[in-house]
Simulated scan of single mutants.
Amino acid sequence: MEIPRPSDEVKEFFRSVIPEGPDVVVKPMFGNLGAFVNGNMFAGLFGDDIGVRVLDETRLAELGAIPGTGPFGPAEHAMGGYTSLPRDWRQTPERASEWIAVALEDVSRLPAKQPKPRAPRKKE
């Protein structure tokens, strides 16, 4: 499976709609970007698509009813629990910001992920 890369413009847009906070971190993931709170991803890029993780079922149904939303990730294996935002929301960043804030709020309630220990380096 080939992983699409986001354009610089989309990366810049993504960073601009991610709220700042002491527990919010944006970092590279497989050539894309992910936004994390307490180690849990709440928003990410897959190519030029922005996906959010909305846990509240009512809000998730509301988001899913908006034209242009859909599965997030590879077509053959979409990421469960994530919904892609309409691409035309780049013209109205407040719409994207609103749903990213919902995802941040939902995911921030999850228990913090503990970092996995690094595997020891092999001696050569």
Results as ranks from 00 to 15, higher is better:
M1R: 14
P4G: 05
P4T: 07
R5L: 15
R5P: 06
S7E: 05
D8I: 10
D8P: 07
E9H: 10
V10R: 00
V10T: 13
V10F: 01
K11H: 01
K11I: 09
F14R: 04
S16H: 04
V17L: 01
V17A: 01
V17T: 03
I18E: 03
P19M: 01
P19R: 02
E20Y: 00
P22L: 01
P22H: 04
V24S: 03
V26F: 11
V26D: 10
K27G: 05
F30W: 13
G31N: 06
G31F: 14
G31Q: 07
L33T: 06
N38T: 03
G39L: 06
N40L: 05
N40G: 04
M41Y: 07
M41W: 11
A43V: 05
A43W: 04
G44W: 11
L45G: 06
L45K: 05
F46P: 00
G47M: 09
G47Y: 08
D48S: 02
D48V: 03
V52P: 00
R53M: 13
T58L: 02
T58D: 06
L60R: 15
A61C: 00
A61D: 13
E62N: 07
E62F: 01
L63T: 03
L63D: 02
L63I: 05
G64L: 03
G64H: 01
I66N: 01
P67D: 12
G68E: 08
T69E: 09
T69R: 05
G70K: 05
F72W: 10
F72E: 00
F72Q: 02
F72P: 00
G73Y: 09
P74L: 10
A75C: 00
A78F: 01
M79T: 14
M79D: 01
G81Q: 06
Y82W: 08
T83M: 13
T83Q: 10
L85T: 08
P86G: 10
R87L: 07
R87W: 07
Q91V: 03
Q91W: 08
T92Y: 02
E94F: 04
E94S: 12
A96F: 15
E98W: 14
E98V: 10
E98K: 15
W99R: 13
W99V: 14
I100Y: 13
A101N: 15
V102R: 14
E105Y: 11
E105Q: 14
D106H: 11
V107L: 12
V107R: 15
V107F: 14
S108T: 11
S108A: 14
L110R: 15
L110N: 14
L110Y: 10
K113R: 14
Q114I: 13
K116F: 07
P117I: 09
P117Y: 06
A119K: 15
P120F: 12
P120E: 15
R121M: 14
E124D: 13
E124G: 12
